[in-house]
Write a protein that binds this DNA or RNA. Structure first.
Lengths: 216, 216
DNA sequence: TCATTTAGTAGAATTGTTTCTACAAAAAAG
DNA sequence: CTTTTTTGTAGAAACAATTCTACTAAATGA
């Protein structure tokens, strides 16, 4: 494996301190690293269209859109761009989806600096980085197709709606945030409730607290 | 206003990149700043017992304990230590609780680098930093004679309704359980929300959870 | 490959919730 | 011992959410 001595990075995260922190760690690894940062979905795409990068370090939480949608768009512009998801969310419910979408690395924000370095290095040299726990989960999924975490039964959009519901948003507000009709929000809410075997917001909040504690 | 040219900082956050990012910003403000970082509740306390700091920048999310409990402990060791809460939560319920507990600053992680600098500078020079929206909330609380426990403002019937709402019952169900009209339930719900300064069930659940957490 | 399931989207009719207003009894304040 | 506030109650109109149905595209399975 050959390592570029001046790899280029795009760091996309809506928190400026996180961008700063990642930049610092990357610079410690690659002194000549070229680093760009983006705080929004839009900026990320703009940069990808303008400049060629070796690695995109991508957060999940974006105010202007779920970042899973960005992956195909990014890939259509730069098919070889490696994507490392760097997320504050519990690995189990998101990692698989992002890996399926085209990311080849997944890292939790709660990890140590050394793990970040290891992940970034691994992404640059071998193009991928996956923790043991995710590897295990991929195996588990192969063996028994029963998700331990009930939230894994939900689709991306369903989780998106559920999370907004939990934050206290009403159907109309959610419909505006996601640019869909309010009846569609109702449909999703209903499906979420059905899939989880519940019928009210309080139960949804409880379930998320039980299985989604990493975040919020 | 005079600024110490070598203030000491303790940055407590469970995400290493956030610690890095904050460090960087602080160093840009104070070239001679002495910075320590802690990733856990335990380490934070250990550092506070060992070293005198000018400012503690404290995250809310800690894996090894409710970070609100750290404030009195920290204060008992260093009563004059200024605490700036740097949180990913945008709910102002948290801000109030942390300010009540003894922090004198509250900053959201979604803010810009300039805002962080302003906040840190303000904490060092004036010992406090609070955004306008939180100031408004504090004023509101004092004007309306808020008791320590916001739930104490509720009447018996209001608590009764609130508890059923929290359990996931709808207005109609509650009206049947309490043998009152469903519009009456709505009226009570409304009054509860008004008294607690909230406007949705998720926030009500949160408040009740916070209240019970205190009594442990 | 063709059938089936899942995901994302919505409209019309129904049902549930809120708002605004109101009023009497009880409690608190002056 | 009056005024004021709080508490418990509700109706009519306005508003929001759900239900049921249904469509398309994409993924999955046989």
């Amino acid at each position: 494996m050959k390592i570029a001595n001046n790899p280029t990075f795009l760091i996309a995260d809506d928190h400026s301190v996180v961008r700063q922190g990642i930049s610092l760690v990357v610079k410690e690894l690659f002194i000549n690293a070229q680093i760009h940062t983006a705080g929004t979905f839009k900026d990320t795409l703009k940069f990808v269209k303008e400049t060629k990068f070796d690695l995109l370090i991508l957060d999940i939480n974006f105010p202007d859109g779920n970042s899973i949608n960005i992956i195909p768009e990014v890939k259509s512009v730069q098919p070889d761009l490696k994507i490392l998801i760097f997320s504050a969310f519990d690995e189990s419910i998101y990692a698989m989806r992002y890996l399926n979408a085209g990311a080849t690395g997944y890292l939790n924000k709660g990890c140590s600096e050394d793990e970040i370095k290891q992940a970034v290095k691994s992404m640059i040299t071998s193009g991928k980085y996956i923790t043991q726990s995710i590897k295990d989960r991929i195996l588990d999924s192969y063996i028994s197709k029963t998700p331990i975490n009930p939230l894994e039964k939900l689709s991306i959009r369903e989780v998106e709606v559920a999370r907004l519901l939990i934050k206290g948003y009403g159907n109309l507000e959610i419909s505006e945030l996601l640019q869909i009709k309010k009846t569609t929000v109702s449909t999703f809410k209903n499906r979420v409730f059905e899939k989880l075997g519940i019928d009210n917001l309080a139960a949804l909040i409880e379930l998320f607290q039980l299985y989604f504690e990493d975040n919020k």
